[in-house]
């Protein structure tokens, strides 16, 4: 999925290989090689063990346990849960809230990914052009990435309230007729959350595109210009194809991000009004923590996991076929 730019990040530069080795281990010519002989390559197993134990141990244990719980009707405390087999799953397929969460996730992904890609790409192209104070713009766009959604949630609640600053701004610029309770009504709650998400993650999209664009061969761009290609043509025919790998990685991250969404809908709209902003994350949280339907929540989790892994596999296959 990711290719790392090879090299030393500029530290040793073009120095001969031996000079970057710490002193006692510098190769000392053919003589040293013959005297000492070669040590056999060690086994990597002990080295990967801590990561495996932590990651695979904890996560796979949890997935297995979730699978087990998903066949119970259980409140999370009682010592003898009622075994219901696949009862939770068949209930799930007739659950309008589940399908609502699916619909919101799909819309959420499609819109946020498209808008973010467009904005991120535009910012990257513009800031690669001759713009003064580029650093200032970079910082402004990137700061939302480091701010925790949980901390910004009350700000957005205040801002998007009927008497909030956003409506004030609309009235100020003469668009007062558009003023409305953005997060208080079903028609605009989901778009409002998508706007918040775009605000939050454009910086991330931008930085990755910006880095990818720095690696485009300047001579290719110059050649295209000499052939008479205009700005738009250069972007569609050279820049966009060159950053296809980044676009793909961002699509993957956006799918996972949409499936994981929890903080913003939970804190800004409480998954409402009338479940208009209910996502997998908020739904599972409600079932397991608030309603004590641990079995049903576990079944939802398993379905979510299957969807997430399926998307991962499909995207990976698509990537292979396009040889990105």
């Amino acid at each position: 999925m990711a290719t790392v730019r090879q090299g030393f990040g500029g530290s040793p530069g073009d120095a001969p290989l031996s000079s970057v080795l710490p002193h006692p281990y510098r190769p000392r010519g053919v003589l040293a090689r013959q005297r000492r002989g070669t040590v056999k390559l060690a086994s990597g197993l002990p080295w990967i063990l801590p990561a495996l134990v932590l990651c695979v141990g904890l996560i796979y244990y949890c997935i297995g346990y979730t699978g087990l719980i998903s066949t119970w009707k259980w409140d999370g405390i009682s010592p003898n849960p009622q075994h219901v087999g696949f009862g939770n799953y068949s209930q799930l397929f007739h659950d309008p809230l589940f399908w609502g969460a699916v619909r919101h996730t799909v819309i959420f992904f499609a819109v946020t990914f498209t808008v973010q890609t467009f904005l991120g790409l535009t910012f990257a192209v513009l800031l690669h052009s001759r713009i003064r104070l580029a650093v200032v713009y970079k910082v402004i766009v990137f700061i939302p990435v480091v701010l925790a959604p949980a901390i910004m949630a009350p700000v957005f609640q205040a801002m998007l309230a009927p008497g909030g600053q956003f409506n004030t701004l609309l009235r100020y610029v003469g668009l007062g007729t558009l003023a409305q309770p953005w997060i208080g009504q079903t028609s605009t709650a989901l778009p409002a959350l998508m706007a918040i998400t775009v605000w939050q993650f454009t910086g991330f999209t931008f930085v990755l595109y910006y880095a990818a664009m720095s690696q485009i061969d300047q001579s290719v761009l110059e050649a295209a210009r000499l052939d008479g290609a205009g700005n738009l043509r250069v972007i569609t025919s050279i820049v966009w194809p060159s950053v296809a790998g980044t676009t793909f990685a961002l699509a993957t991250l956006s799918v996972i991000g949409a499936l994981k969404t929890f903080d913003i809908p939970w804190l800004v709209t409480q998954a409402g009004p009338y479940y208009a902003t209910n996502f997998f994350g908020t739904y599972i949280y409600q079932e397991i923590i608030q309603l004590d339907n641990v079995g049903y929540g576990a079944a939802l989790s398993i379905v979510l996991l299957v969807i997430a892994v399926a998307f991962g596999v499909v995207l990976q296959m698509w990537r292979r076929r396009k040889a990105l």
């Binding site: 244990y61 979730t66 989790s301």
Partner: peptide
């Protein structure tokens, strides 16, 4: 893996 999947176990 979405972290919410780990919640129940």
């Amino acid at each position: 893996l979405p972290e919410v999947v780990l919640l129940a176990p």
